[in-house]
Design a protein around this nucleic acid. Structure first.
Lengths: 359, 359
DNA sequence: ACGACCGCCTAAACCGGTTTACGGGACCGT
DNA sequence: ACGGTCCCGTAAACCGGTTTAGGCGGTCGT
């Protein structure tokens, strides 16, 4: 016969137990400051009343939320549609859980990423795929929350975890070149914020640009080059890959080799090629990027650039936690000096690539 | 030359602008109660100081967090390892974003799901795969937070969104039976909380039990039955599927048809079969469950039971939002009467199933 | 017998905002 | 000149906890 209507507060417990609310607080947080039997009595009464310290009130006084934010410039529907992100989230989540932190996702709300950021109750943020020229990056910085960048443009003052994009991309292109391909199509990830790059094209320091640079290095070393319009882009999803390939095909491009910047894009592209009765790799070869877990189980098994996805998440959390308790811990120590980690990539040859069709 | 050390508070803005903190609050929340020029002036000063209302303080007074929790009994590393969950999260995330809510993940912290729940600052929770006999379900209920169950055992008082597990499972088994298979192996998802079912086996009303019931319906209608030990289980990941199949094989089972309760398990099982030089579907047929997006792109393309994954997420959010503003809105109306939705499933035949091998 | 110390508990300040109730001045009509 | 509104803005209470500074009675040491 308990009333479900209202959540019991600390005063309710205090009154019921005939003690001050300080005592109730102590019973939960520093029981050693109370006589053992008093602490027990209070806890039993709290249990009976169904009392639990209000998490928000507790946060307010403690100044910590035990929550880590995962910031993405894209809406969650596209973020989670990329299998890459599942593995990344698994890595980040495992590391956060181990440290006792929960995960909160921060994505644009009513159009504003900074707005979402302001509403978020987090002790630190892992930002993934945040372009340095994102229009709201300054406002985000002003929140003063510790941030670690992943797969983003370097921003002064923030630590980062990235991979060897250039080397990976170069390896992918070299592989196709070695097989005799010369007509290549690049499928990139759409710049997260269309507005930010309306004039300048993709962020010149972003992931997409770095990978294109890697592709170009390999090409020019082989005396080849990308044709005009041979770089298309779409959201990093299976669907986006299919659409991007269709656009290129309709534009008249007839590549024999495709360099996709994510496995999801590669999967979509392969599907679209099939729909055009083109065989992979007999007619067209495809190289992906990421080496997601299912890559080996696909038809055909995907040749791709491996990157340590879960590890990337783990190391990001590691760096972030260091930044968080650098600010919480020693009184004077404001911020740690930012650290930049670059993880290795390597080519994994499977079955989606083959020799240039001799027709 | 701004000091980065301390976050500006509302009093700082008030002092700087020569107004009360009430005025500052009004400038942000009810500008119409201030002279337009005053409101502007305050906002400009706030902007200059880099002031933003502290989200936690705001939550405390407003009583709302604009955050929805996603509760899973498993650690995030296993949850996110299942591609199914990516699609589900995409559905749930899109719906939440549209309503202006952020997403927070609630998974066991230091072993306690209820503990994590108590730390979470959310207005409502979507619980996925929560067994009715989970040891902490009572404690979770006592938090009083609105909850919608997905793929869980029904719990009195809470709304739920599920799928036709029995019908789907039956269709899967009927398909294999029609192809002539009689020796079947079931690979189920591991009960989330080992402790909860130590004695009783899996939750008799849980998803796993419902699907097994569906399989059995089809079998007994065909005069067949599951062999002893023909139900194995593992975490719903690719890896888990491989290990489960290996265990069954080592136990001497030699099925020609496999009923996996998730596509991830099916993928892992197919990989393990390959490692034993068994061909799919020539030697062994495999039916999955979920119809994740990559299912059609696998080698072989996966025969599976389709379920509307993203829609399940959307409808769960819909129900949850209704419950949330039923409690926030009209003063008297405590809770809405719980609603239970069951979404349809259907068999999708692709290439991972074939006729019983005549050897 | 007296001061010091200790163990247990409490009053009050504080975290950083929002909201209610109200005060003062300008304007209006008479 | 006076009461009634309206417009702007403020003081103080409040959200639900934590934490600091002490108070009080009993025991110990001498």
């Amino acid at each position: 016969m308990e009333q479900r209507t209202v959540r019991p507060r600390i005063d309710d417990v205090a009154r019921e137990a005939g003690v001050s609310k300080t005592a109730v607080s102590f019973a939960f947080n520093s029981p050693e400051r109370l006589a053992p039997e008093t602490a027990d009595r209070i806890r039993i009464i709290a249990e009976r009343l169904g009392y639990t310290p209000h998490p928000v009130a507790r946060m307010l006084t403690q100044g910590a939320t035990l929550t880590i934010g995962v910031l993405t410039p894209q809406p969650l529907s596209v973020v989670f549609a990329n299998p890459f992100f599942g593995t990344f989230a698994a890595g980040i989540g495992a590391a956060a859980e181990k440290a006792g932190y929960a995960l909160q996702f921060i994505s644009p709300l009513r159009g504003s990423l900074a707005g979402a950021m302001h509403h978020a109750t987090v002790d630190g943020v892992v930002a993934v795929g945040l372009a340095g020229d994102h229009p709201e990056v300054d406002e985000i910085r002003r929140t003063g929350v510790p941030i670690v960048l992943v797969d983003s443009t370097a921003v002064p003052g923030w630590s980062s975890v990235s991979i060897d994009d250039i080397g990976g991309a170069r390896a992918a292109a070299e592989h196709l070149l070695a097989l005799g391909h010369r007509d290549l199509l690049v499928i990139g990830v759409e710049p997260p914020t269309p507005g930010s790059s309306a004039t300048a094209g993709p962020d010149p320091n972003g992931v997409t640009a770095r990978r294109v640079a890697g592709y170009r290095q390999a090409l020019s070393a082989a005396g080849a080059a990308l044709a005009d319009g041979a770089v298309v882009a779409g959201p990093a999803t299976i669907e986006g890959g299919g659409e991007a390939l269709d656009r290129a095909w309709r534009a008249g491009l007839r590549p024999t080799g495709i360099l996709a910047m994510s496995d999801a894009l590669a999967i979509g592209a392969i599907g679209a090629l099939r729909a055009r009765d083109l065989r992979v790799p007999t007619d067209v070869s495809v190289v992906g990027f990421d080496d997601i877990e299912v890559a080996a189980y696909l038809e055909p098994a995907l040749t791709t650039i491996h990157q340590p996805i879960a590890r990337k998440g783990r190391e990001a959390i590691e760096l972030l936690l260091a930044a968080i308790d650098a600010r919480t811990g020693p009184a004077g120590a404001g911020a740690t000096t930012p650290e930049h980690r670059v993880l290795p990539t390597h080519l994994v040859v499977r079955a989606s690539t083959g020799p240039f069709p001799r027709r």
